[in-house]
Amino acid sequence: MRPLTEDETKVFFEKLSKYIGRNIVHLIDRSDETYYFRLHRDKVYYMSEALMRQAISIGRDQLISLGVCFGKFTKSKKFKLHITALDYLAQYAKYKIWIKPNGENTFLYGNHILKAHLGRITDDTPEHQGVVVYSMSDIPLGFGVTARSTVETRKLQPTDIVAFHQADIGEYLREQDTLF
């Protein structure tokens, strides 16, 4: 477990800001307690100072996970956000999409979001913007990237894609072996 290098931080924050923009500050400057991002075996974890201090006693090989995993660095040093970061993304998301009940399952199987399933979308969402996906009852289901801006989605056919799938909570079942 170690702090992120400058380069890693840059790559990581760039990715994160696609979804929560300047709200990243709220993750770093918290009023309740100091929180840190730490790297352990290519994965980035987010934890309170108290948790970090205690976990120092755990050996490198025996430490499996701590706090909340945000994602991991790929071999080519890109950062991939994992579904496990959803809690924080949903809390600070700038742009959101709500999908209708009949679209919940297709999205949870890893499919893109079609116009027919679109319930609501934040006004003025630009094209290719990171968005957090919710059910109509405000349960966060995953996140993705918009295919069109809010204005343009109005002109789309029901079968056209409004947002590309990136991660969904169905991965807790589908990807359990690779994700953790």
């Binding site: 934890m47 309170s48 948790l51 205690q54 976990a55 755990i58 090989d61 025996q62 430490l63 499996i64 996970s65 701590l66 706090g67 909340v68 995993c69 496990t84 809690d87 909570i169 807790y172 359990q176 072996d177 994700l179 953790f180």
Partner: peptide, 25 residues
């Protein structure tokens, strides 16, 4: 059991638990 910690980490994240350290001793 290291294999079994996978399901453990998965459940911890799915249920939104933030105060846990998972270790394999």
């Amino acid at each position: 059991n290291k294999e079994r910690t996978k399901g453990l980490v998965s459940n911890i994240h799915r249920l939104g638990i933030k105060n846990t350290v998972v270790c394999n001793y």
